[in-house]
């Protein structure tokens, strides 16, 4: 099946894709797809979408501000920070670098907000914090979102953006897949809505847990979505993969995503979906 898709950001662990992607504090950005350089303020006014359609990776806070009603976001669990549970060599420095690059303390920002006046619990992962890897504090913050949503009888919207489990936390990172899945399940059993939005990248342990467990699963255009890394698959099969392999379009065509939604249209779609489940 030939799937023609013009751009495909790389998914490399611990790296920010191709050069020119936004880092905290940068002012001019060069599009990895069309190589056009645009100032950050122009991109900011266009949801960080290049004129060619390329969706830049964005930080968790930028994303939340873009979608929710202005001033409605109340953050929770800010005090939950990563520690170094298995004393993994170099993890401390990695965390330090992640804090600098993302301006965040963890790979996920969580809280409560309204969208078009409808209350919702939310979590947004930050690709600039260790490629959004899933550590114990990440899993804890996401679990708390679902638990509070159960208590307050609210829907959850979650933006995933992650290279997978955080290997520097060993088994405790792997356990977060089960822990968050358990929380999603309990939320679901209360007949509450969970909308999962897959953004670039959603792979490994995150795609194999809460990211794929939404009642509704949306994806941003051009995101890398899959289980195994592309290079792992190529090493295994000894064949080059297609450019379309593991893109949003690819998972959509294979039936794992409800809809591909442009970031500029996300707020409207999310509002519509929430409305269906809360009554107007």
């Amino acid at each position: 099946m030939a799937i023609n898709f013009p751009y495909r950001p790389k998914n490399e662990l611990e790296r920010h894709g191709r050069g020119g992607e936004p880092r905290h504090g940068e002012k001019e950005l060069t599009c990895p797809n069309c190589h056009r350089t645009l100032s950050e303020s122009i991109l900011e006014n266009n949801y960080y979408i290049c004129s060619c359609g390329y969706h830049y990776r964005i930080g968790a806070r930028t994303r939340i501000e873009m979608i929710v009603d202005p001033g409605s976001f109340e953050e929770m669990s800010e005090s939950i920070k990563p520690n170094d549970p298995i004393s993994f060599p170099g993890y401390g420095e990695k965390l330090e670098k992640a804090r600098r690059e993302s301006g965040e303390e963890e790979a996920v920002v969580t809280g409560k907000a309204t969208i078009g006046g409808i209350e919702v619990m939310l979590f947004a992962m930050d690709p600039f914090f260790m490629m959004g890897s899933l550590g114990s504090a990440t899993g804890e913050k996401i679990t708390l979102v679902f638990e509070r949503a159960i208590e307050e009888h609210l829907p959850v919207i979650g933006w995933s953006s992650s290279g997978g489990a955080r290997m520097q936390e060993g088994l405790l990172s792997l356990m977060q897949m089960a822990k968050t899945s358990g929380a999603v399940k309990r939320h679901s059993e209360e007949r509450l809505l969970y909308i999962s939005v897959l953004t670039d990248p959603t792979t490994g342990g995150v795609s194999a847990s809460y990211a794929m467990e939404g009642d509704v699963i949306l994806a941003e255009p051009g995101a890398t979505i899959g289980f195994a890394g592309k290079r792992v698959v190529e090493a295994m099969t000894k064949e080059k993969t297609d450019r379309s392999f593991q893109t949003s379009r690819f998972v959509f065509e294979h039936g794992f995503v409800d809809s591909i939604v442009e970031r500029s249209d996300e707020r409207r779609i999310l509002y519509e979906l929430l409305s269906f489940h809360t009554g107007r």
Partner: peptide
Amino acid sequence: CGVGAEERGQSEAIA
């Protein structure tokens, strides 16, 4: 880890 496994939703199956 393979193309077919990805096409048939390895992530979704594990989740």
